[in-house]
Design a protein around this nucleic acid. Structure first.
Lengths: 330, 330
DNA sequence: TTGTATGCGTTATCAA
DNA sequence: TTGATAACGCATACAA
């Protein structure tokens, strides 16, 4: 592939002039600039990214480390990130941690090596990924989940409050034995939603004992958990489900047991999705502003990259309950 | 951030030895290697990716250019790509073209500049992105859609055949006025599914006139198209829908009109999804092996990057019809 | 086995 | 305004 010196030779100027012309510096004679552009075009010249990055000691790349691109929630986040990044001339490297701290560490290493401009991280566990990044002066913004030892910019949803609200909603609708299906221990959103569920129980004056199951935030694992929950000697008459994929399993389990959402068992699930209104009755959800989270986090990160050294911020966006038929008793 | 020469100084050796030790060359004294590793560790040394890439004239990065990460079909592809790439030590840069040839061109430029090792491309239109890449010796594998002027490795689904099969299935179930809702003109998958639909009509001896609508492969645009289709003077009694997002709109439209899938209007949609079995009746689908497509394409691409110069291949994976209640007449 | 020296392709500094 | 040159950090050819 053509290099800058080939372009220089062809245009009959120095490499310095080529560089200036190509980067649109104004201190270059229009005639020469024209010759340079023509030569570059003829040779199909493309500036060498790595060389430029090495020289400038910076790259226009962001890393986005999330647990699963197949989860529509993270997908929406990634879309928000990508749109903002793209507008600012940045590319986004997508990394699936699968909520595995080792994989997360691995990706952080790659991010460090490649000298990415910044990292958007949805921390998998109690690891120190963020500290490691900051120790090497790589800006980090935590997204969806707080950092274990905090301190960095963070974009969250008030998920505990939303879980509390959803739980109270179920209680108000007349359900009495409220269960909860949440994600793995150690994943902040999973724990927060469980905590919010307990908040709600307390506020409603209910005590279900512990009608709680954990699963991996995915449909397959959740199927077993859902069945186990419904097989309790005194099964729940309503369930708060901590994400969308698990909700599918809960609804499938209810169907297998011949139970109807809303009438037999109230259901509220986190994350809205287009299909939730197609089922009968429609699924009540806690809608999270995923796209905005991604966009906000990306903006924040770009600000830091741009040299913003003001105090770190915690942005908490609101989730809101969308009550539908699946949580309407009777 | 620490450089190789700082490590060299600390370990009391030359940079060459550090480089060799860190890259696990066997021609280095174990004692020295130990000192080097220790020094690197103490300094928190991370090799500088751009410098290494520049020197080695290669990067361990793949670009994946698809139309929309929010489409579960592409999400599954990207997962397949990522898993394979990660195992081989490669990172994946995700690019949303939004089916916009200009955006695609832009991303191709970035891929070229950054000297990515290879590109996985789901071509947006009739552009020459693939040729441009190949002209600069960047391996390309087309995925889900053939390249306009072909010639490169390609991983496809026999989508036209599948559409034909789905159409015939509807005819066999007794539906007589078959409609089709497909994607934008120029997008090969959209056109192929339409062609398959026509194949099916012909094979079944039906002629619906043209009960065809096009939309943008997304839910919002499809809503209008669905309504328009159902508002025909002689509306279809069955619809083949070219993807999952549009299916949501069709089902919603039917619901609004008080029509029941299967009984009133037969529906078959491309792409399976967890929720399709939750609705009543369950949605008949054409299931595509998206994950495998991604994995296969990535493997192919890595092969080319590794120097495989055998003839280019076209891999066609099979989609299969999953008949459910929404296409069972009466 | 180790060290010295060079070059990868750019940008930026300095003189002209 | 332009050009010669150095430097970014690393891997390797070559010499020792």
């Amino acid at each position: 592939m053509a290099t800058i010196s080939e372009v220089a030779e062809r245009a009959g100027v120095s490499t310095a002039t080529v560089s200036r012309a190509l980067n649109g510096k104004d201190s270059v004679d229009p005639a020469l600039a024209g010759r340079v552009l023509a030569a570059a075009d003829e040779l199909g010249y493309r500036p060498n990214g790595p060389a430029r990055n090495l020289r400038k000691q910076e790259t226009a790349v962001l890393a986005l480390i999330i647990s699963d691109v197949e989860n529509p929630f993270f997908t929406a986040i990634s879309r928000g990130v990508e749109d903002v990044a793209h507008d600012a001339g940045y590319s986004v490297v997508l990394c699936n941690s699968d909520d595995d701290p080792d994989k997360e560490r691995e990706y952080v290493e790659v991010a460090l090596q490649e000298r990415v401009a910044g990292v958007l991280l949805s921390p998998a566990g109690r690891g120190d990924s963020a500290e490691k990044l900051r120790a090497h002066d790589t800006p980090v913004v935590a997204i969806d989940r707080p950092l274990p030892r905090s301190g960095g910019d963070t974009v969250l949803v008030d998920t505990r409050l939303a879980a509390r609200e959803a739980t109270l909603h179920l209680a108000e609708q007349g359900y009495r034995r409220l269960g909860c299906l949440t994600g793995p221990e150690g994943v902040p959103t999973a724990d927060d939603r469980l905590a919010g569920y307990r908040d709600g129980l307390r506020a409603a004056g209910l005590d279900s004992g512990e009608l709680v199951r954990r699963s991996d935030f995915k449909a397959t694992g959740a199927a077993e958990a859902a069945h186990s929950l419904l097989a309790e000697r005194q099964p729940p008459d309503a369930i708060l489900v901590a994400n969308n994929a698990m909700a599918v399993s809960v609804l499938a389990a209810l169907d297998e047991l011949g139970m109807r959402p809303g009438r037999d068992v109230g259901v509220v699930a986190f994350d809205d999705a287009p299909w939730t209104v197609l089922i009968d009755p429609p699924l009540s959800v806690v809608a999270q502003p995923a796209y905005d989270m991604g966009a906000t986090a990306a903006q924040l990160l770009l600000g830091r990259i741009g040299g913003d050294h003001t105090e770190t911020t915690v942005t908490t966006l609101s989730a809101h309950l969308v009550p539908r038929g699946s949580s309407r008793s009777g």
